[in-house]
């Protein structure tokens, strides 16, 4: 609102200034910029230059001593701030990179450890199962050997019984047929027959 009022005031002032421009009593011949001979314009043209020098000197003073250093400081400030922020970001990135590398190394170490643990567990289980299998085998072998020995003994005793039975049967048969029997001769004959058959 204040700005609008200011602009309105300026707009109202400008025509007043412009209207004053046409108040020359003596008409100006040719270009007013070169009307040095004109009583009014000539004086104003020189005055314009003098005032120009003063006003421009004021502008230079205001700019060089007051305004521009401050604006330069504002811009410098921003550059410094941006540079500092960039630096901080760079540092943070380096830190993050370091943390990432540490994390990766830790992961790698943990993975190796786990692998070793798994390998040793597998090895232990293998050894355990091997030992158990060996013990079982030994026991089974012992049982087998014992059973075989028992079978052998049973067979040997069975074979011995066959001779007695055969001798008794032969003696009974001979006694029935002949009326008498020579036990010693029959026993010898049975032994010979069994030997011939490979069963003695």
């Amino acid at each position: 609102m204040r700005r609008v009022t200011l602009l309105a005031a300026l707009a109202a002032t400008l025509p007043t200034i412009a209207m004053a421009a046409s108040s020359s009593a003596v008409p100006v011949e040719g270009m007013p910029q070169l009307a040095f001979g004109h009583p009014e314009q000539g004086r104003l043209l020189i005055g314009q230059v003098v005032w120009l020098l003063l006003i421009f000197a004021a502008l230079y003073f205001l700019m060089a001593k007051i305004a521009l250093p401050r604006v330069g400081a504002v811009i410098e400030n921003r550059h410094a701030r941006i540079a500092a922020d960039l630096e901080a970001a760079q540092a943070a990135k380096a830190e993050a990179d370091g943390a990432m590398a540490a994390h990766r190394a830790a992961t790698e170490a943990a993975r190796g450890e786990a692998r070793a643990a798994v390998a040793s567990a597998v090895q232990a289980a293998q050894a355990d199962s091997d030992a158990k299998a060996a013990a079982l085998n030994a026991r089974l072998n012992a049982q087998i050997a014992e059973a075989e020995a028992r079978i052998e003994a049973a067979r040997a005793s069975a074979m011995g019984a066959i001779r007695g039975v055969a001798t008794d049967t032969a003696e009974a048969l001979v006694a029935k047929l002949v009326g008498r029997a020579d036990r010693a001769a029959i026993d010898t004959a049975v032994g010979a027959a069994l030997t011939a058959q490979g069963r003695a």
């Binding site: 200034i17 004053a20 421009a21 020359s24 040719g30 007013p32 910029q33 009014e40 104003l44």
Partner: peptide, 10 residues
């Protein structure tokens, strides 16, 4: 077109 360039005291 030239009177616009005339000077006048303010």
């Amino acid at each position: 077109a030239l009177s616009q360039f005339e000077l006048s005291p303010v």
